[in-house]
């Protein structure tokens, strides 16, 4: 593992689908507000879910949640969650933008769309983490992050409720790390100190 990748990290982006909420709840409540990076969460959710995921994370996490609206500035020390029924994109001026275009991998938000967009802007200063799920979304995004010199982490399929998504990523990419939620937590605590 290259140490400088971790020290330079400006954004940690986490994608997941079915079963990922459990993993997130094993991780997020135990991390202190990060001093050097922002956390962005892109999970598949119902179109009708306007706010329940945000409310839950806000309640459980020590890190402050910032509501994502169009052109919200992305700042270190906060959690951002991709809103339901929009794709979440990253702009050069470090703001977030939204897009209602076609679903990708039957999903909006799509993990691939956000991962690819974040890779374009943050390059080696990005860590992408893919959690439990039962479709192929996320794999192409991890590839893009790796190609842009970012770091990629996949949830250990043995620890995942729905192992298909992390397995698919492992088959088609070469993850820097394959970790259980507990290990992802330890990793994030470690880079938070760095």
């Amino acid at each position: 593992m290259e140490k400088n990748k971790i020290i330079d990290c400006k954004v940690v982006i986490i994608g997941g689908s079915a079963g990922s909420l459990q993993a997130l709840l094993q991780i997020l409540p135990f991390i202190e507000p990060p001093t050097s990076f922002a956390m962005v969460i892109v999970v598949h959710r119902k179109n009708s879910d306007e706010q329940t995921l945000e409310d839950l994370i806000a309640l459980k996490a020590k890190i402050k949640l910032r509501e994502v609206e169009d052109k919200t500035p992305l700042e270190k020390g906060y959690i951002y969650i991709a809103p339901s029924n929009y794709h979440l994109l990253f702009e050069k001026n470090e703001t977030l933008s939204l897009d209602t275009s076609e679903k990708v991998n039957y999903s909006r938000p799509s993990i691939d769309v956000s991962f690819e967009s974040a890779a374009e802007i943050y390059g080696s200063a990005l860590i992408g983490i893919l959690l439990s799920g039962s479709n192929t979304d996320g794999t192409a995004g991890l590839k893009a992050i790796q190609k842009a010199s970012g770091m990629i982490i996949v949830q250990n399929p043995l620890s995942a409720d729905m192992p298909f998504m992390p397995k698919n990523a492992m088959l088609n990419t070469n993850p820097d790390l394959v970790l259980t939620p507990q290990e992802i937590l330890e990793f994030l605590k470690e880079i938070n100190k760095a």
């Binding site: 994109l89 990253f90 702009e91 933008s97 275009s101 769309v113 967009s117 374009e120």
Partner: peptide, 9 residues
């Protein structure tokens, strides 16, 4: 136009 979306399109 917002570049991120335009570039994707």
């Amino acid at each position: 136009y917002s570049r991120a979306s335009l570039k994707r399109r």
